[in-house]
Design a protein around this nucleic acid. Structure first.
Length: 210
DNA sequence: AATCAGGACAACCGCTATGAT
DNA sequence: CATCATAGCGGTTGTCCTGAT
């Protein structure tokens, strides 16, 4: 799992790594990814940790196929914003920029070309349909907003929670249970049983390891 | 049944923006 | 004001899966 000392791991994440990451994000919050990466014992870069969290582990994410409405929305928003994936993603709660980007790359681009194709652009007609999906002017807050709807999503969350050994997670995206410490190889647990946010600074914290 | 092509998705890389010191 | 660290974004690549031949 965890590679050689000092070696940064790359490639697919293991369940164990996911578990560790979720746990440390819960403790430290979604910030200071570099620090989190060091402290967690994951031999990953902060960047990699953030990406994994944002694109896969975040409890607010939808998992599964795009609905036709979402497809249409992506199409419309791409018309409007171009390749501003983050911007587009912000209008599609529960979807990540990466997901949308991938999705676009595969079929939407093709679809868009087809629709544009020989005749006029679809944008005007699709816009009206789009209003229904309350995109555009309506500023959707964030991913939490849709977590309650999608059965796919709920299913995934339950699956993920059980996979990670948690019983439930609350509305702010935190799992309410204790970490299954026995499966945690990180030295953190030996040195710092106290919540990490109690620790003043990483310099101090790091002393525990070095 | 084997293999090939395309789709779907995860992850990495480089660059830029922003905030802290 | 300049510099450094961190976060975020968009592009790209790699791998696995699935359906067609």
């Amino acid at each position: 799992m965890v590679g050689e000392r000092g070696e940064i791991r790359k490639g697919p994440w293991t369940e164990q790594e996911d578990l560790q990451l979720v746990w440390f994000v819960r403790l430290l919050g979604e910030r200071r990814w570099d620090f989190l990466a060091k402290v967690s014992g994951l031999n990953r870069t902060g960047k990699s940790c953030r990406l994994r969290w944002v694109n896969y582990l975040h409890p607010g994410l939808k998992h599964g196929r795009m609905t036709p409405e979402e497809e249409q929305l992506v199409l419309d928003l791409h018309e409007k914003y171009g390749n501003r994936w983050a911007k587009i993603a912000s209008k599609l709660p529960g979807r990540t920029d990466n997901e949308i980007k991938n999705y676009w790359r595969t079929h939407m681009r093709k679809k868009a070309q087809e629709e544009k194709g020989p005749s006029s652009s679809p944008s005007s007609s699709s816009m009206s349909h789009n209003n229904e999906a309350q995109s555009e002017s309506t500023e959707l807050t964030d991913i939490e907003e849709t977590t309650n709807g999608d059965p796919n999503d709920q299913l995934w969350q339950v699956e993920m929670a059980s996979k990670l050994g948690f019983e439930e997670y609350n509305e702010i995206g935190c799992y309410n249970n204790s970490m299954p410490v026995n499966s945690m190889p990180s030295p953190v647990w030996e040195y710092n049983p106290e919540p990490l946010w109690m620790i003043d600074d990483h310099a101090e914290f790091k002393q525990g390891f070095n």
